[in-house]
Design a protein around this nucleic acid. Sequence first.
RNA 1: GUGAGCGUGGCUCAGUCGGUUAGAGCACCGGGUUGUGGCCCCGGAGAUCGUGGGUUCAAAUCCCAUCGCUCACCCCA
Length: 427
Amino acid sequence: MKIKALKGFKDIIPDEVDIYRFIEKISRDIFHRFGFREIRVPVLEKTDLFVRSLGVATDIVEKEMYTFDDRNGDSVTMRPEGTASVLRAYIEQGLHASSSLQKLYTIGPMFRHERPQKGRLRQFHQISVEVLGLDHPRIDAEVMAMAYLLLTSLGLSARLEINSLGCQKCRPGFNQALRLFLDNCQGLCDDCLRRRDTNPLRVLDCKNKSCQEHYQKAPFIIQHLCPECYGHFQTVKEGLKLLRIPYTVNSFMVRGLDYYCRTTFELISDDLGTQNAVGAGGRYDGLVKELGGPDVPGLGFAMGLERLALLLASQDNGSQKAWTDLFIAALGPKAQNVAFPVSHYLREKGLSVTMDVMDRSLKSQMKQADRAGANFVLILGEEEFEKGQAQLRDMRSKNQQPLTIKSDLAEWGDDIRWELGTLNSEF
RNA sequence: GUGAGCGUGGCUCAGUCGGUUAGAGCACCGGGUUGUGGCCCCGGAGAUCGUGGGUUCAAAUCCCAUCGCUCACCCCA
């Protein structure tokens, strides 16, 4: 019986890794421009960390975490998201002491025991970005602008939707108003009836038509924001305008995690089926304190690498294949015996070199060279080898020139490097 | 947890009102070019037809069970 990977756990094969590396490279570059630094944190944490940060009643904590007792009997959890771990590290390492403002990001695997579907896995990968220690609304706009720039830099388009969830002062009032409104609605669907109690905001994006008719008249959270939250939201929007970042306000947008307050946002793509958010985040003032740290405000977002990769793959951007500087085609045992150490010498000197060690026909070796994306092929033929000659072929121009083989392999290797250098500079 | 669809060489799929040696394309290997790639032509290797059981003279095809994958719901990146 073949052993297969677990449900929702995927191998990322070389062609796909190229896409992931591309995404990561662009991300690091963009984040650097905004003054962010990378932090790497463990994938396994004490269960309590996530229970406290995400909220006991959230779906993630209730039924999606990979939680188990380790060999000491301690309850541990494979991280379902990045923010909690980064904040734990921020507090534990005393990063707040070295600078009151910390801009951090991390890239890595997250784990949630969900039913897999398009753009959703049990082990998936996120880029997670956090700003700690700054509550000015402009940073909210800046972070959204950075997320937006990342997408456009990747050649992707997505729309930015924003909302404000208010704070501990004004949200309860809205929740009450909403619940009152829902109690007076007749004929809501079963889902909405359930959500009315568990997560009232969630009813607002119900897909049921009759429910939606009701919600046309539902109270908007924006109307219930306290003056501070309202002002914050206004400045966020002004900031986005100043930066010329297009956005729409979606007052029905909710976050699944308890810790969000005030600004929330999502980056939505229409090419992802129903899992249409490529990135999402928001402000989480109070969370650091909740986790035992100083009372500093926080803000962050996460992007799903799989979803980004899905979008990039769908845009048939011709993935460049692997390449190699030089392929050595050696025919016959004698030539092979020389080619083998020369290939190693050239690699020591920094060239990427491939050769066929099975001594196959020249035709098939040329084929291999082509597949390896070789820029040049060094041909060591049996007869020529006896005469101390080799051929250096430029695979693009098909030009071929003779090269004298020297008995001192290092000396000859340097000759080859020299020739490749002069030939390459012509391009 | 709920619902629907689908499991045939490495990949994408055809074949399914049961009927001989299960096909194609791509990829792979070899040859045509006695020592020169990408195109073309020819040949080759490669399949427990997801698994188990049942019906039948005969099952990839029908029935039952089971496993897996996919998509959707819930929820989320």
